[in-house]
Amino acid sequence: MKATFQVPSITCNHCVDKIEKFVGEIEGVSFIDVSVEKKSVVVEFDAPATQDLIKEALLDAGQEVV
């Protein structure tokens, strides 16, 4: 499964690193693409990962998800 999250609070590479760390810890996540320019995060994943778990990880990383 693939999901795109709009994350307007992404401003720098530190944000990218933190997002990759938090989302990458979720079992089932196979790909993460964070774009500072587009302020988006694209995640490819399989169970047990879910969109809700990914959104929670983004929030835990200090990001706003819309």
Rank of each mutant, 00 (worst) to 15 (best):
V42L: 10
K18T: 09
E56P: 01
L58W: 02
I19W: 03
F31H: 12
I54Q: 02
F31Y: 12
D33N: 11
V41D: 02
K38Y: 12
V41Y: 04
T50Q: 01
H14C: 12
V16K: 13
I19P: 02
G24L: 10
V7D: 00
L53P: 01
N13K: 14
K21N: 06
T11V: 12
D60S: 14
D52I: 09
F45T: 00
L58D: 01
S40P: 02
T50M: 03
Q6L: 14
S40K: 11
Q6A: 09
T50H: 04
I19Y: 01
L59K: 10
I54T: 02
D60I: 11
Q63A: 08
I10V: 07
V16E: 03
L53D: 05
V34Q: 02
C12K: 09
T4M: 09
L58K: 00
K55V: 14
D33T: 12
D17T: 14
V7P: 00
Q51Y: 15
F31S: 10
L59G: 06
T50L: 03
E37Q: 10
F31C: 09
A49F: 02
F31R: 13
K38S: 10
L53F: 05
D60W: 12
V36P: 05
I32Y: 02
A61E: 02
T11C: 14
F5L: 01
P48G: 01
V34S: 02
V66D: 07
V41A: 02
Q63H: 15
N13T: 12
D17Q: 13
K38V: 05
S30P: 01
F5N: 00
A57T: 04
I54V: 05
K18R: 10
V43T: 00
I19N: 00
I26V: 13
E37I: 10
V65I: 09
E37G: 06
T4V: 13
D52E: 13
K2F: 08
T50G: 02
A49P: 02
A57G: 05
V65Y: 07
G28T: 03
H14K: 15
C15D: 14
V16S: 05
V41R: 02
V41G: 02
L58C: 02
T11L: 09
G24H: 05
F5D: 01
L58R: 01
A57E: 00
F5I: 01
V65D: 05
K21G: 05
F22Q: 06
E44T: 13
E64T: 15
M1E: 06
S9V: 04
D60T: 11
V41S: 02
Q63N: 05
S9D: 06
G62C: 15
A61S: 06
F31P: 01
G62I: 13
K38G: 09
N13C: 15
Q6T: 10
I54D: 01
E27S: 08
M1T: 08
A47V: 08
I54W: 03
A61V: 04
E20K: 15
A49L: 01
A47S: 09
P48I: 02
H14G: 11
A57C: 04
D33H: 14
K38A: 10
M1G: 07
C15E: 11
E20H: 15
V29F: 03
V65Q: 05
F45V: 00
V42C: 07
A61T: 04
I10W: 10
K39D: 04
V42G: 04
E25K: 15
K39T: 05
E27P: 11
A57D: 01
T4F: 15
F5R: 00
I10M: 08
V42N: 06
T11M: 15
Q63V: 13
F45I: 01
